[in-house]
Structures are given as structure tokens and as C-alpha cells.
Amino acid sequence: MSSRDDILGRVRAGLQRNASNATIARDEMLAALTNCSQGPKPGIDAEPKALLERFRLKSELQSSTVDIVAHESDAPAAVARYLAAMNLPKSAVAQPALAALDWAGAGLTVEARGARDADLVGITGCFCAVAETGTLMMCSSPDTPAAVSLLPETHVAIVRASRILPYMEDAWALARKELGTLPRAVNFISGPSRTGDIEQTIVLGAHGPYRVHLVIVAD
């Protein structure tokens, strides 16, 4: 007997599985998968300005820094400002999805591609953001490779205010609507990577970025 059959056989024996209770259970399973019912959620003011404010506050609590600009075309200058203020290099890797922005115009040398180990700054967009916890939702694709938000020591993310949603549940609904199926990797990111493994002291920059800067586009 295969291990699969042996394991499932013992599970079925434990549950006293038979044809009639299997039919009922299968119907319940299909109902659960169709209904996608939600659990209790903390109350959040879903008015756009309040959402933006909550997202900003929660992001800062996660040790991200936040800047707000009026239009997407202002984003490269905001990124350049941040890099200069932090004394960081003016060259960066950006997800191909952001290739069309005028990076050179802001004085930055930006290559739109997947990330390499030597890249010090990674610039990404995000699929949407979650106000409840101050979290970015990143969906991988050829235009949005996952490693750009992971390998570089600095991660700068451009977030459209209109894509800030109250809850993670809303993000799933949006993904089902716009993408149909889940991409290979959905990464929810809440601030720089960190560890507390030595004496429970939180240190930023464990294996991923040391710092995360968010440029929110208000339009």
C-alpha cells in the first residue's frame, strides 16, 4: 500500500468515514469553498482619507517611512529625494512595470529588470495595500519580480492611494477579480525585515531590506 493510501485510510477510519457522511461532508466543503465567509474584523473607517491616514500610521509603526506625492509622475523625484537624504546610491533596480517613469529626469540611474545580489536599492510598485496592518501586497509576475523587494538593502515602494483597502479580505477579493488565479508568489510586506532571535531584541535588516520607504501617490 502507498503511504498516501495508508495515511488517508487511517484518517478515514478515525473519522468513521462512510458513503453517507462523505456526501454530507463534501457538500459542506464545497459550500465553504464557495461562500468564503469572513471572520470578525476590527472596525476601520473606510473613508479614503481615513484609510490613507491609517495606512500611513500603521506603516510607520512597522518601521517604514512614508512620503506622499500628488501624481505618479512626481514619484521619481520623491525617490531621488529619499535616497539623497539617506545618503544612499543614486542607482537602483526597478520592477519592469515601472520602466516608463522618468527616472533619468530625477537624476537616477534605474535599470528595469529582476534583482541581483549586488543591487543596493530596489524600487517596486504593489498590487494593493492593506490599511488594517500597514501592509503591502505584492503579486509576482514577469513585470513584477519578487526579488526586487527582497535582495536590496533598501526597498522603495510606490503605492497608489486608491489601492489602499481596509482589510486583507478585500485584497483577496481584488485579486480574484483582477487576476483570476493567484500568482506564483503573493508577498505581504509590513516594514523592513527583522529578527528578535538574540535576546528578543528587535534588529532591522535580517536577511531582507534594512529599510522600507513608501511613496504614496494621492491621485
Partner: peptide, 17 residues
């Protein structure tokens, strides 16, 4: 900090995974 939901394998045109 990270919460990753991983589904299937890299597509040929993808950079990583």
C-alpha cells in the same frame, strides 16, 4: 513582516521563483 502565499512554479518568462 513577511507573509507569503506561494502557488505553483515559476512561469518561463518570470525572473525568479
Amino acid at each position: 513582516n513577511y507573509f507569503s502565499i506561494l502557488t505553483g512554479v515559476k512561469k518561463p518568462e518570470e525572473h525568479d521563483g
